[in-house]
């Protein structure tokens, strides 16, 4: 009985559980309109398409829960795809070395974001906004305006292909497996010492600092994870959709929408990584629902905007009415 009450409180509480209730509601609506959606092939196709956003959401979660933003992920995803196309230039043998370069580049961008934010005390909004401009300009400067080169077949594999001939399911896309792996890693990370310090830092960095946490270090590492997630997402999107100058455009806002939809609070300290990834799935499911309802694609932003405001307003309303899990407030006493 008590479990039931806790469960229902979690579902409508505006926190982590709510996003799963929302996801279920959207799936039910989709099932009503198109029962065929829940057959394995179309479900797998849905997950394959959602994988990049889910992975980006996990990366963005680390940054947001520590009290920062990362607005540079969209530009970074675009940069990675363009870098891959230009460096590989259709040569199969270059696939692995270029993947290494992309990895280093993603980690490097995250590290620079983190160091500027923590060591130079520039707000992350400005740091990553500046990084977005720099990446956007630098990539076009390097390629002369339009992306050049092409991707190799091996590079496109993870985003396109999968394990075929699995009984019952048919084909399991690599993207789905990568998504599950990244999700599991993110959940594990949040249970380690690092994860706890990260949340504590986002909740109250002064208190965390006074308790001996290296807040600057964990925040920087969070940015590095975000850069890593953008690299993986770039690999999947490049494979799935190919190269164009528009790849990643506006993605930073979609990802932040997804994370916030998962009940993660901007400003840090609250929300779980599972819910952030579920928020990304919910957003993708919502776009699928729009497709099924034959809504004109141009109206999507309106619905997305209305939903994100409603979701956050609902969560804020629940929080002020009944502070469920009040975090310990630490009185700052310098002595």
């Amino acid at each position: 009985m008590r479990h039931l009450r806790t469960a229902s409180a979690a579902l409508i509480g505006g926190g982590t559980g709510t996003v799963f209730a929302l996801l279920a509601a959207i799936f039910i609506a989709v099932a009503f309109i198109n029962p065929g959606f829940f057959e394995w092939p179309s479900l797998m196709a849905f997950l394959k398409q959602a994988a990049p956003l889910v992975i980006l959401a996990a990366g963005q979660y680390f940054v947001i829960v520590s009290g920062n933003f990362d607005l540079s992920v969209g530009a970074l995803v675009g940069a990675q795809v363009v870098i891959a196309a230009k460096l590989i230039d259709g040569e199969e043998s270059r696939t692995l070395p270029v993947l290494g370069v992309m990895l280093l580049f993603g980690l490097g961008v995250g590290l620079v974001n983190g160091l500027i934010t923590t060591a130079l005390k520039v707000q992350s909004f400005i740091t990553t906004l500046g990084m977005m401009l720099v990446l956007y300009g630098a990539i076009r400067l390097w390629t002369g305006g339009a992306p050049t080169g092409s991707l190799s077949e091996a590079f496109r594999g993870p985003g396109r292909r999968g394990i075929e001939g699995v009984p019952l399911i048919g084909e399991i896309p690599w993207a789905v497996l990568i998504m599950l792996g990244a999700g599991a890693a993110a959940i594990w990370l949040m249970r380690t010492r690092f994860g706890r310090i990260l949340v504590a830092t986002g909740d109250n960095d002064l208190a965390a600092e006074l308790s001996g946490a290296r807040t600057g270090t964990v925040r920087t590492v969070a940015f590095v994870f975000s850069g890593l997630s953008a690299t993986v997402a770039g690999l999947l999107i490049g494979g799935y959709a190919g190269v164009s100058a528009q790849v990643g455009e506006g993605m930073e806002f979609t990802v932040i929408t997804a994370v916030v939809l998962g009940g993660v609070v901007l400003g840090g300290g609250r929300g779980s990584v599972v819910a952030a990834m579920a928020g990304a799935l919910t957003l993708e499911a919502l776009f699928t629902l729009f497709n099924q309802m034959f809504l004109p694609a141009s109206i999507r932003p309106s619905v997305q905007g209305a939903i994100i405001i409603a979701a956050v307003a609902y969560a804020a309303w629940r929080r002020t009415r009944r502070p469920v899990a009040a975090t310990a407030t630490v009185n700052a006493d310098p002595s």
Binding site: F69, R300, A306, I309, V312, A316
Partner: peptide, 23 residues
Amino acid sequence: FLGVNPFIATLGVGLIIKGYLDT
């Protein structure tokens, strides 16, 4: 009045207008 983070609130309002303009 709704206590929504301004980043989200105004991004949401902007998206709503964008959808209207595009349609």
